[in-house]
Simulated assay, not measured.
Amino acid sequence: MAVRAAWLTTRGDSAGGQTREDTRRVPLGMMTPVGEWQTDPGILPGAGGDEAVIGGLRLYRTGPMTCRVLGGRAVVQGTLEQGAYPVFVDSPVHLTVENGDATNPRVDLVVMRVYDDPYDSSGRTEAAVEILQGTPDPRPKSPEVPPCAIPLYEIAVPAGASAGSGGIDWGSALRDRRFPTVAVGGIVPTGAAAGRYAGQYRDNGRALERFNGQSWGSPLEDTGWQPLAFGGAVQNVSYAPCYIRRIGGVVYLRGRAEKRPGLAEWIWPDQLIARIPEGMRPFGGRIYTFAAARNRIAQYETCRLEIKANGELYCMSGNPNTPATDELPKWISLDGVSYPAD
């Protein structure tokens, strides 16, 4: 049997019941909660093949109007009373698409579906991969996904399509409708995943995002760029402009400090440049060396800044006792400066 489901039949059923092998191979434990009693359905990611996110239950053409769905594992959610069915496909399922309508195109839907007679009165107790035929129309739509099923692919069937007329253009006819599911606490490997609970993570293809119960965002606290404050004794320093930002436990600076127009053009030793706000100060104070402006003497093209524990940012360039203007910067770049915060 190609398609098998766990927790669907019992030992005494005519269908034979769930075997020990079934229990070992179905995706038990792959359950992300959706509310108190329901489970997020979908395909288990990384099931092989050359696809980065979902490798299971891949569809390949086998003829002008035929295809096959390869193996994979999935979770199918039924009604609230039914619960969720772990399902796996252990051998290819061969499907035949019905000939196209004489006048209009249609869109068929390939689904993974669980039939459970006590709940759906279908007369069937089994899992299946099957094609739901769409309605021919000048602007056709895919059939609705039935209860206790998950979509796999849409197939665009042209008007008049048949094996004798060349069949389906499989290269352009398929639309992948599969979506992944993972265990609670797992990282969903797609940026399109819906948020299910606060604290859930997903991979958007570039970085991890965390769901806060309302929307997806960075898992690290990010203050965004804020103007770096000038105040108190800082009377003669301007900025063009300077900013500060904290992401997680790291603080970043950018911009440049310079003298205000009409005042002495040099930034003197022990000059208070700015004040680092609370929550963004380095523990115990830190000293950093980074690029300053070009001066008259090449060896003084860098200067030292000191960020004290109270948040005061000082320029430490030149000799604090008898400074020579040759040794002093006209402006100081903060770009690229970062440090761990408290």
Rank of each mutant, 00 (worst) to 15 (best):
R245D: 06
V89C: 14
R254Y: 02
E265T: 05
R196W: 02
F211E: 05
G255Q: 04
Y119T: 13
L253T: 03
P147S: 08
V89A: 11
S317H: 14
F179I: 09
V107M: 08
A264V: 03
T66Q: 12
S91V: 00
G171D: 15
G249K: 12
T223E: 03
Q271N: 05
Q200K: 07
G78L: 13
E221Q: 10
L272K: 11
T9V: 03
K259R: 15
L334N: 05
S165A: 14
V110P: 04
L305V: 12
P282F: 09
A274D: 02
N212E: 04
K259V: 04
G100F: 00
R106T: 09
V87M: 10
L220N: 09
V69N: 04
R206F: 14
T322M: 04
G224L: 07
R275K: 11
G48L: 04
L28G: 06
V76I: 15
R275D: 09
V69P: 04
N212G: 04
R275T: 12
A159E: 13
G29I: 14
G134P: 03
A324V: 01
A198P: 11
G83L: 01
V182E: 10
E327S: 00
E144F: 03
W37I: 06
A291L: 13
D101I: 02
P147A: 08
M280W: 06
I131M: 01
C303H: 04
P146Q: 07
I276E: 04
A193P: 01
E81I: 10
I168Y: 10
G63C: 08
F211C: 08
Q235F: 08
V337C: 11
Y197V: 08
M30N: 09
T62C: 08
V34D: 15
G311R: 04
P241R: 15
I168D: 15
G248I: 04
S162H: 01
V69L: 05
D137A: 13
S218C: 10
S317T: 11
T325K: 07
G29S: 13
R245M: 06
E221T: 12
C242A: 15
T10W: 02
G231M: 10
A156K: 12
W268L: 09
S215V: 14
R11H: 15
A193T: 01
R68I: 01
R246P: 05
D335F: 03
V107P: 02
A341F: 01
D117M: 02
G160F: 07
R304T: 12
R196K: 11
V26R: 03
R281D: 07
A6I: 02
E265C: 01
G213W: 08
N295H: 00
E98I: 02
G12Y: 15
G279H: 06
E126I: 11
T32E: 15
M1P: 11
T302D: 00
M1E: 13
Q18G: 13
R246N: 05
L334E: 03
N104A: 12
L109N: 07
T289P: 00
A183L: 13
G164I: 05
V76P: 12
V337D: 01
V93M: 01
N321C: 07
P33E: 09
R294P: 00
L28V: 06
P45N: 07
L95W: 05
D342L: 12
R178P: 14
G166M: 03
V26H: 07
T96V: 12
N99A: 13
V76Y: 09
M65K: 10
R254E: 09
T223Q: 02
V93P: 01
T302I: 00
V145F: 08
